[in-house]
Amino acid sequence: MGGNETVRAYLPIAAVVAVLALVPIPFVDSRSMMLVITTGLLFAAYTIAFNLIFGSTGQLFLCTGALAGIGGFGSAIVSDRYGIPFVITMVGAAVLSGVFGGLLSWVAVSRSLDTIFTGIVTLAFSLSYENFVLGSRDLTGGENGLPITAGGESIIGGQTAPYYVFLALVAVYLIVYRLIQRSHIGLAFKALRDDEVAAELAGVDVARYRIIAGIIGSIMLGLAGACFAHYRGFIGDTTYGFGSVDVRVLVMLAFGGIGSLIGPIVGAAVFTVLDELLVDYAQLREILYGTVTVILFLSFRQGVVGAITNRLRRRSAVDPIVGGSVDDGEVLETTHEPVS
């Protein structure tokens, strides 16, 4: 029973990774298409991290781009200036993102009314990040951007290989998400989402779990941002800007379904394809994202994917695979309670 359940919990991850591994086959000859799908995986990674912070613990971090940028710029600057291997600087920069994310989380959760305060503090943090990148030209290159040499010679600088590096990153993030969800922390998160006061009364340390989620999610963002910097070989002030990262990540998660395991992948895939189809209308992108955000939050609270699976489930009885892959709240409820 226990083993069966573990398989069922991780099966969707294996299935998704297997499908994603086949995506590059038609595109291996095209450098531009490889960039498109690799960036798609980057956004999937961002969205999983944001899902961990916002979906699981309800902290509206409006600084996903800034936290990724700390990882990207941090790793690029240190590795290129001091000749430290980029693998080490990536980890270091990711930890730095984690420190910032933890601090933001700590400030916001130290008071009630955390949704507002988290949103405001993190949005303000995004502004100071952007001003910092533009203002400290000798470090970040300001609006001219920053060319990066570290990592260019390794597999992360190739054409097809980086896709699989990012796929590995996405796979690890999904496993981490699932592991956390199935651990004590995950059960506490679920208790928080269902009834914060009751959870607190039962001895769940609300603030502590929020901060832990903030730190882990921010490390994920920083690491993904750092990987992208070394892959791309060039980053600028808009690479991790609010308009280019936060807006998209929010739409992708809202579409895929907040708090679902596979939702971020679906959201990232749909909007990557959509962006490619609308490549000639790039200026209309933000209008589209804004409109979709409003519509999604007004009508489909569990995202489009959640809405579809709910309808399917109502039609046929409970389908454990679909249930397991999309609506995790349900899975935890039905299969986890008896497990000690």
């Binding site: 509206l60 409006l62 308009g243 804004g290």
Partner: peptide, 25 residues
């Protein structure tokens, strides 16, 4: 309560994206 605050915040964020997008376009 919290649901109202979150929904209001997210909807106005979306409106902000739309206005920014229109201006940029």
């Amino acid at each position: 309560g919290e649901a109202r605050i979150l929904l209001g915040l997210l909807l106005m964020l979306g409106v902000g994206f739309v206005i920014d997008g229109v201006l940029e376009w």
